[in-house]
Simulated assay, not measured.
Amino acid sequence: MTCYDVLVAGGGPAGAAAALTLARAGRSVLLAHSGRGPAPVGEALPAAARVLLGDLGADDALTDGHLPCLANRSAWGGPRLASTDSVFDPHGHGWHLDRVRFDRQLRAHARTQGARLATGVTAQPNGRTADGSWVVELRGAGERRTVRCRWLIDATGRRAALATACGARRRTGDRLVALHLTLGPADPADPDTTTTVEAAPDGWWYTAPLPTGRRLLVWYTDADLPAADPGRPAFAARLAATRHILELAARHPWPAGAAPRRAPAHTARLADPTGDGWIAAGDAAAAFDPLSSQGILTALYTGLAAGRAVHARLVGQADALDAYRADLAAIGATYLRNHRTHYAAEQRWPDHPFWRRRHPPPGGGGHPTLVAIPGPSPHMPG
């Protein structure tokens, strides 16, 4: 039975960052990438990611196949569209990612540094040996095999599959859901290179161009509200009521017969992101409101930090996990302050359930479980 220092479950940015960090530190690593579920759609990556990618030794992950994001625009707190240009960002411009390509590039970097990659498999812990090693079953298409490892890193996304299997408790803070649709290529090519956010009575819209020439269109609302109807007629009617998003979407054809797909976007976190022999990173540790536009940035950061924490623990640094937990707690506290401020800036529909839930009552309240990388968001006003 093959034995590794660490098994990382999840081949997205968090898992790849953790595997890359550990492999560069000389650890034997198996990165288990299931490749299941719908392919990730495009996403904007802030310019600050240059620093993290440099720390990971993956500076060239953005050199090919991605579209520069030159400005972030928002109609928030009023109908006027405000813009923040990348020329004012010390790190330069951000990117509209080809997510499939980006994730694949990061996994390739991890392999180059010595990590083993198992694709098309899921990891299922099946107990531990007398010396504390994990026994993990890898299941794929017609394949089952067992490996051992000293540590597990859960980067399986919001499911937190390994952590919850180990008894971790998952907490949620809201009911946010995303209804997303990818529009066809514009003819002629759409010149827009921005991300655009527009608040509405029962939620908010997000749109951005994709490197393929297509356009991503997303409606965010709460899953229990009538506005969460995923039907194409309801989606189109809400879009028609927008002032700025409709103008951008109108440049692109709707795929024949296509309807919006629904995806979870709610706030969630583990009560404790670490345990005996395991640690969680990315959305498995903490997932938060997409308004911050820092999901991938957080995934890269927590993957890097989790990898460093596990390596430090393996060399005998007893407080390595305490430092990781404290880091995530500080990140959460900073984000909570920003989140309250940014949602409070939109006061046009105070009696609508979506906004009322996000406006804390006098004296406090709000969303105590939100977690994200600290710092101002390009999509949040202020």
Rank of each mutant, 00 (worst) to 15 (best):
A227D: 11
R261C: 11
V315S: 11
S377I: 04
V135G: 00
D190V: 09
D60K: 07
L152M: 15
F235E: 05
S292G: 13
A268L: 14
D327T: 15
T212N: 06
P209V: 09
R36T: 05
A372V: 04
G12L: 03
R262L: 13
A161W: 01
E247T: 13
A178S: 14
R159Q: 10
S293W: 03
A25D: 12
H96L: 08
R215E: 07
L291F: 07
I373N: 04
A333P: 01
R171H: 15
T341F: 06
R170S: 09
W151E: 10
A130W: 05
P188D: 12
R139P: 00
H93A: 12
T112V: 12
A115M: 04
T195P: 02
A312I: 06
H359A: 13
P353T: 11
D154C: 05
S86F: 08
L370M: 06
A271C: 13
R269L: 12
A263L: 14
L22I: 03
P211G: 06
S377Y: 00
A208M: 14
G127V: 10
A168P: 02
L291A: 09
R232E: 14
I153T: 13
R269D: 10
V197Q: 03
A234N: 09
T21K: 04
A118I: 01
R158I: 11
R159M: 02
I296F: 03
A227N: 02
P211K: 10
T119Q: 11
G54Q: 12
A287G: 11
G140K: 01
S377M: 06
R99H: 06
G364L: 12
G295V: 06
T267S: 11
P40E: 10
L370Q: 12
P273Y: 10
D289L: 05
H367D: 15
D229P: 01
P46C: 10
P381R: 15
P290D: 06
A208K: 03
A285L: 06
